[in-house]
Amino acid sequence: MEEFTKLIHKYLRHDKKFPHVWCPGCGIGIMLGALIRAIDRIGYEKDEVVLVSGIGCSGRLPVYVDFNTLHTTHGRALTFATGIKLAKPGLKVIVVMGDGDAVAIGGNHFIHAARRNIDLTAIILNNSVYGMTGGQYSPTTPFGMRSTTTMYTNIEHAFKISELAVTAGAAFVGRGTVYHAKLLDGLMEKAFLKQGFSVVEVIAHCHTQYGKLNRLGGPVEMLQWQRDHAVTVESAARMKPEEMEDKFLIGVLADRDLPVYTEQYERIRQRAKAGQGKDA
């Protein structure tokens, strides 16, 4: 074996059973590959990486890779990650969540982690549905679509996760798809290197639940949809608004330098130790 696969094997836990647990054609595996390649390109030591997840299909990801790994409670991954990062700022803390995990049950934690600008990377696999529990609608299920709990169609409106992250104050926000795997590699690398709260929203597909219920085809057809509806930020700049109507942006949506929590807190420590007045 060589190149990508060789390095992917370098990071997998060899005492875990493969093939992994996800359905044939699931985007989580593609996302995992991008994550590993980005970590390898930056050159992080395995010991310094902490991979944290919540609950759901994406929650099963950390178990397969040879880092410090933590599989937390549903929606709470960012809170555990906050504790890890603040207590040991030298660690590179990466949080993997699904759309239900990150913006339904964990929505409050998500906006506050972004607001604080804690130096974490949140990777959110957005497949528009609760896959593991059997296809119930999530906060990113589009209006009018079917799920096992919206069999008469969904009358709620979907969150735009990346736009939410930008508004909440994240330092870096990127959106990719699992079809655009190379772009995803690059977005993850940029996010990991960013000082502050970085978000990578990964548009993926759940053909097993969401695709089947909405007759969207299998993984191939759903990847084709991603290919045909994703427009890079650069291309979109040259397009008319009506051309963008049924499209979504991929690429870097925000990249800004903001005060980073851990650095700010270190300054608080120095002030506290110097006996500088609390009200100074």
């Binding site: 809170t79 504790g83 603040l86 040991k88």
Partner: peptide, 15 residues
């Protein structure tokens, strides 16, 4: 909820 989550995370680093 977040408070105890952060506490557990910090404890996992040995703190």
């Amino acid at each position: 909820i977040a408070s105890l989550g952060a506490v557990i995370g910090a404890s996992l680093t040995g703190t």
